[in-house]
Simulated assay, not measured.
Amino acid sequence: MGRPESGGGFVVPTVDISAYVGQGTAAARQAVAHAVDEACAAVGFIQIVGHGIPASVIDGLTCAVDDFFGLDPEDKQRYRVCGANRGYTAPKTESLSLSAGVESAARMNDFFEAFNIGVEARSFTGLDLDEADYGINLWPDIEGYRSRIEAYFDAAQRVAGTLTDIFADALGVEPDFFERLTDHSIDVLRMNNYALPPGTDVTLDGELTGMGEHTDFGIVTVLWADQVRGLQVLARDGSWNDVTPAAGALLVNLGDLTARLTNDRWMSTLHRVRPPVVNGTIERRRSVAFFHDGNADAVISTLPSHLEYDNGLAYEPITVTDHIAAKLAGSRGGKLNAAAVREASRVLHAAEK
């Protein structure tokens, strides 16, 4: 659960979603939808159990992650990102805080490395989709790697679909509301490794950043993570709070597009990763985020039922592809995302506390 960094009673709620995974009663599903609604409004992060992903699939995922990040640096560079959001990114080549509209003194200094795979344009026969949005995957030449990653990808994709079913019930929209936004969703699996190469000297009280403060881009994120400290979530009171997943649980957080739909009643919560320092040294930490971002051509507008929130100021409609492009231009292109006004104001408010 969540543990406050600076006092208070910050908690990431735990919700058992098994009523939506199996044949739950209408009353049981209503209770889940109500719990999710409360968690999304209060925190924007949830721990979910009863998600139905077998331990063997998660074990296969973590072994595959270890296999790739255990390669020599030169071998990993063979799979570096080129163009679309697929492949390898090396340490200190991104700055997530720029995607949230915040200029960081430690520009392009996030020390994590990552590897991305996702849905491809050719996966959707009959649709003329742009490979700039739905890139071609680069598969490492590691025995069994692709099958293990795809098994988890399929499971996480199912969980994301279950969550949007719950969201539809919680928000009182049509049952197929999110399906219409996600039937050719830009889904990406990002595997993160927080570790420094052996023999690297580092000052632990300097500007080193695991991953800068940011919000996720799309509709919902499903996160598997080690039980190693590092992830911090920004509470509504402006405090940063440590969050460690419970055994067997997945962390879920909302993305910007869901915040736009609900006019920030449901928050796309800012989060960051601090260097996982244990006994004076940086301990390796792994996480795997499944981003369910929505159809590239979908237009996201504030729901009429939520126009009264945030003093009646609704978000301007935006396509999924335009929103993601602006965010990636910040994190990878080093360009400050001037459109992220609300996110930046929350970061600055936290810095003042």
Rank of each mutant, 00 (worst) to 15 (best):
F290K: 00
T281W: 13
D226H: 01
V320K: 11
G199F: 13
G333S: 10
L254F: 11
T281D: 11
V252M: 15
S239R: 11
H323G: 11
R236W: 00
R274W: 07
D205W: 13
G312H: 09
A249K: 03
S331T: 15
D264G: 01
F217I: 12
G333W: 07
L313F: 03
T321Q: 15
I318S: 12
A289P: 00
T302Y: 03
D264C: 05
G238K: 03
R272K: 14
T258G: 06
L307T: 12
T269H: 04
N263R: 08
L336K: 06
I282S: 08
T319H: 10
G280F: 05
V202P: 00
G210E: 03
L270E: 07
R286N: 15
V273Y: 10
L303M: 14
T215N: 13
S331G: 11
P198Q: 06
D201N: 11
V288D: 02
L313Y: 07
Q232V: 03
N279S: 14
M211V: 05
H292D: 08
G255K: 03
P198M: 12
T258M: 15
L254G: 08
L307F: 01
D216L: 08
T269A: 06
L336M: 04
S287E: 09
E283H: 14
A314K: 04
L231S: 14
D322H: 04
V278S: 10
S268Y: 06
S239N: 10
V299G: 09
L208N: 14
A289W: 14
L307W: 09
A325M: 07
R265F: 09
F291C: 03
G218Q: 06
M211I: 01
Q227I: 02
A298M: 02
E213H: 10
D256K: 08
V222E: 00
D242A: 14
K327C: 15
R285E: 08
G230I: 06
T203V: 14
N241S: 12
H214E: 03
L251G: 00
